[in-house]
Amino acid sequence: MKGLKFKPLVLCLAVTPVAAVAEIQMLDDSEMGAVTGQAGVSIELETKVNIDEFRYIDEGMLAISDIEIGGTNRTDLFPEFRTNLTSHPASDLIDNIRIDIDVLADGDAVINVQPVPILGAVDLRVSTGEWQLRGTTDSTTILDNFHMDALLGSATIRVDTQTDYLNFRTDIAIDDLEFDAPFIAVGIRDLRLTGDEYDIDEKRVLDLFATVELDMYRGHRADGRDALAIDLQEFRSDITIGGVLVGETSIGSVALDDLVITDTAMRVYGH
C-alpha cells in the first residue's frame, strides 16, 4: 500500500462540509436496480473473419479450409427489386449491423441483432474451400467451393430464466448458394431460399425472408441421461435450384414450393 497517500485523503475529508456529508445516503437494492442497467448496451459492428483451416478431431478428422465470413461486396442481391436492400455501399465487411443487449426485470437476457438503418438488411457472405475427411492414410473431399450470399433481416437470442431455454430466431433470405460434392460427383448451382409467401411477380420485401426459430435447452436422450436439446418450432420457405450437376453436366433445375418443417426435435450428445 505504499502508493496510498493518507494525508491528502484526511485533509479532503476534514474540509468536506457537514451538510454535504449529510446528503450522502445508501441506496437499497430496488433503488439500485432503478438506477443501473435501464438502457442496456448497443454495439455497432464492422468485421470480417478469415480462418485458414477448422478441424474437428475424433479418431480421424474433418478439416474445412479457407473459411471466409464477411459482406457480399454487392448491391444487387435479389435484383428483381432493382434497389440496394442493404441501404449501404458494397463492402466485403459485415458493416451495417447493431447488437442491442438487455437484461430484463425478470432476469431474462435478450440480444437483438438488427440492420442499420432499421429498414435495411444485413448482407452476409460465407465461403469455404475443401471439406475433407482425413484418416491415418486416406482422405476424401466431401464438399468444395461452398459459397453463400444472403440477407439477414434480424435475429434475436433470448435466455429465459423461468424455463432455462435459449430461444434463437432469425429471418434469412439466400440469394445464391453453390457447392460441389466431389465424392458423389454432384454440384448445386444458383440455390435461392425465400419465405413461403414470396412471389417474384408480386414481390414484397416483408415476404422475402424465411423465419427460423430454435429452442435450445438441457434435455434427455432415450436412456434418460442429459443431452443438448434443439427443437425447431417451424420453418417455412420456397427453394429453387437453378442447376443440379451430375458428372459436371446439368440435369435440370428444382423448385420446392411451400416447404414446411415442423415438430422437429434433436438430442445431441457424445458417445
Score class of each variant (00 low, 15 high):
Pro182Leu: 11
Ala265Asp: 11
Gln114His: 12
Ile24Pro: 00
Ala229Cys: 08
Arg225Cys: 03
Gly37Pro: 06
Ile118His: 00
Asp196Ser: 15
Gly247Pro: 02
Leu45Ala: 15
Thr211Asn: 11
Lys2Cys: 09
Thr137Lys: 14
Pro8Ser: 14
Val116Gly: 09
Tyr165Trp: 11
Arg218His: 10
Gly247Phe: 02
Val110Pro: 03
Val254Arg: 10
Leu245Asn: 02
Asp258Asn: 15
Val244Asn: 01
Thr240Cys: 09
Asp196Trp: 08
Asp108Gly: 06
Ala14Arg: 14
Glu178Ile: 03
Ile118Tyr: 01
Met266Leu: 15
Val18Asp: 07
Gly3Asp: 15
Asp144Phe: 03
Gly33Ala: 04
Arg225Pro: 03
Val268Asp: 10
Arg218Phe: 09
Gly60Ala: 08
Lys48Met: 12
Phe146Leu: 15
Thr86Trp: 01
Ile24Glu: 11
Thr170Val: 05
Ala20His: 01
Asp28Trp: 02
Gly247Val: 07
Phe81Gln: 08
Ile188Pro: 01
Leu143Gln: 12
Ser250Asp: 00
Leu177Asp: 05
Ser87Ile: 07
Gly224Cys: 06
Ser139Pro: 00
Met26Thr: 01
Arg204Met: 04
Ile174Asp: 00
Thr240Pro: 03
His220Gln: 13
Glu23Phe: 03
Glu44Val: 09
Arg221His: 02
Leu191Trp: 01
Asn145Trp: 03
Ile69Arg: 05
Ala265His: 13
Leu119Trp: 05
Thr36Glu: 10
Leu151Tyr: 00
Cys12Gly: 13
Leu62Glu: 00
Asp58Gly: 12
Pro79Arg: 14
Thr83Asn: 12
Val268Arg: 09
Glu68Ser: 10
Asp76Tyr: 00
Gly242Ser: 07
Asp58Met: 11
Ile172Ala: 05
Lys7His: 07
Ile241Leu: 08
Leu9Tyr: 04
Ser237Trp: 02
Ala222Met: 06
Gln38Ile: 08
Thr161Met: 12
Gly60Tyr: 01
Leu259Gly: 07
Asp106Pro: 00
Gly153Asp: 01
Asp175Leu: 04
Asn145Cys: 01
Asp29Ile: 01
Val159Arg: 11
Asp207Val: 04
Asp106Lys: 04
Thr170Arg: 03
Arg169Lys: 11
Asp144Arg: 12
Arg98Gln: 15
Asp29Arg: 10
Asp108His: 04
Gly243Tyr: 03
Asp28Ile: 01
Asn73Arg: 10
Phe54Ile: 14
Leu191Met: 15
Leu9Lys: 11
Val260His: 07
Leu133Val: 14
Asp201Pro: 01
Val126Trp: 07
Leu104Thr: 04
Leu232Tyr: 06
Phe81Leu: 12
Asp28Arg: 00
Glu59Leu: 08
Ile157Lys: 01
Val205Gly: 02
Thr86Met: 12
Pro182Gly: 02
Met216Cys: 06
Asp199His: 07
Asp171Gln: 13
Leu4Val: 15
Ala90Cys: 05
Arg98Asp: 13
Phe235Arg: 11
Gly219Trp: 02
Val126Ser: 03
Leu152Ser: 03
Thr211Ser: 14
Val260Gln: 10
